[in-house]
Design a protein around this nucleic acid. Sequence first.
DNA 1: CTAGTTGCAAAGAGTTTGCATGGCG
DNA 2: CGCCATGCAAACTCTTTGCAACTAG
Lengths: 144, 144
Amino acid sequence: MPYKTRQSASIERLLSENRDRHLTAETLYRLLQDAGERVGQTTVYRHLEKLCAEGRVRKYTLGDAGACYQLAEDGGACRAHYHLKCTRCGKLIHARCDFLDRLSGHIFAEHGFAVDGSKTVLYGLCKDCREREEGDGCSSTPTK
Amino acid sequence: MPYKTRQSASIERLLSENRDRHLTAETLYRLLQDAGERVGQTTVYRHLEKLCAEGRVRKYTLGDAGACYQLAEDGGACRAHYHLKCTRCGKLIHARCDFLDRLSGHIFAEHGFAVDGSKTVLYGLCKDCREREEGDGCSSTPTK
DNA sequence: CTAGTTGCAAAGAGTTTGCATGGCG
DNA sequence: CGCCATGCAAACTCTTTGCAACTAG
């Protein structure tokens, strides 16, 4: 039976306060330090691992840096939308709209493939970076 | 101006011979050794990195183990559709249809984000693997 | 008191870098 | 011959593990 400790409470509190963000293990660790909570990073990793196993936290392993974690909404809020990650500035956008809502259903129905929104990230350039990229002669400029 | 070396030729040859598979850096390294090609793993990493930057190779960083690499189909062909990668069996599906065609345009128009189809992969379970997964009580079953 | 929890330090895995040597052009 | 490429080993980053001290129940 798991014990209720100061550390686990701190970690869950911070995860809860940042349920709208993706946190790396290190970021979470630093937030704890900044908040004056003394929690070792080993403990952070161990709790994240456990919470993932329980399904209460989702783990994103996108890109080259470390994995990101985020509290899983009960209703699967982050499953209901897509993540757009800018390959230039690293910004992560949570995109949500009807069109995207239907995307999973479409792929499932037409292609027999069950997209896992929690693992999927659409890469590209965000508006700001795209404007900066313009005129560099690179072929990545959309034809449209 | 890049030189043409025995090593780069070996690496590109193996990537080409395995264009239907996704290879980790280590697997590629071992394949080279097994083929009697003397190529250091540093060189493997450096070439993969360069090829990725050139867009000739696609890098998949899914999950906890090492990244996987795969030769990108020539030029714009793979930009015109989406890639569905099964997280279970590793199969890569090239999905193409009207709905997906409109996806990029939609995201561009509505979200100001220019998706790069050559870098984007939708992760999930293919039909075969999904049937195998069923009944494991996992919450990953799509609501729909 | 007992068993789960913590955290430092060390180990590990995957990847990158420093630097002297090698080889293409 | 000049410059890029190579490869060994060491450095690095992120994460996990060993183990003794700690603490909730």
